[in-house]
Amino acid sequence: MSRIKNTFERLQAAGRKALIPFITAGDPDADATVPLMQAAVAGGADLIELGVPFSDPMADGPTIQRASERALAQGMSLRKVLELVARFRAGDGQTPVVLMGYANPIEAMGYAEFCRAASSAGVDGVLVVDYPPEECHEFSDALRAHGMDAIFLLAPTSTPQRIASVGAQASGYIYYVSLKGVTGASHLDRDEVARRIPEIREQVRMPVGVGFGIRDGATARTIAEIADAVVIGSRIIEEIERSSRDTVVSNVQKFIAGIRAAMDGVA
């Protein structure tokens, strides 16, 4: 059984929801990434979304774009991201790692080589923001052939037909973007999310995570009441920006532990 499926089943049996932090690989520097991933797990993360930096991150807000720029300025690349995953995997055989990024670095490497390298590094799933399902059949098939999940986004504007076509290609979990806009935006409509998740569940039989706009324990808790997973990204990047190199790992762990505690108040 895949690590992602295993994780969600274990959580469900325990009546808990998944906490999924997002960090950009190579931010603030390459040496910090594996310790940050380990700190996230120590703080209570169940799965880690690791951002692959790209020069033109169209779907992200300014916070994650800054993280990408910092990482690229230090020479981070898709191949180096995979090395970091392999290093993390050497010490943690359990926590799933999902790469999140844009199509072009994968296109430049080639599907076959990327899938081989990612699966041997210990990547469990890949979310390519600018690969909608109709443009990436070949890529999704290649991922699955290597035992990795193709993770897709759904949005408040996704129609029922759209939900069905995404559901037909997705595996692992669905990432529901909780608002119109880019990552790091600040308004989240709980009622809208609560209304949409059952519509998604009708057509898609896999866990649904919610992200975009979740910035604190109270919101995370609200979302954990209605979704299977809570994704937090920009707020963690801000924590990284705010910290010195000496305190960044412990600050991120503390922040994630706070979110975890708020979520675990959920029965």
């Binding site: 169209m58 779907a59 199509a103 923001v129 600018d130 690969y131 909608p132 109709e134 443009e135 897709f152 986004l153 759904l154 949005a155 504007t157 996704s158 129609t159 759209r162 995404v166 973007v177 119109k180 806009g181």
Partner: peptide
Amino acid sequence: AGHFGRYGGSFVSETLVAALD
């Protein structure tokens, strides 16, 4: 679907799909 041979297409985030439709 907007393809010129292997080029073109619609490589966008799900958040833009409805607007493009």
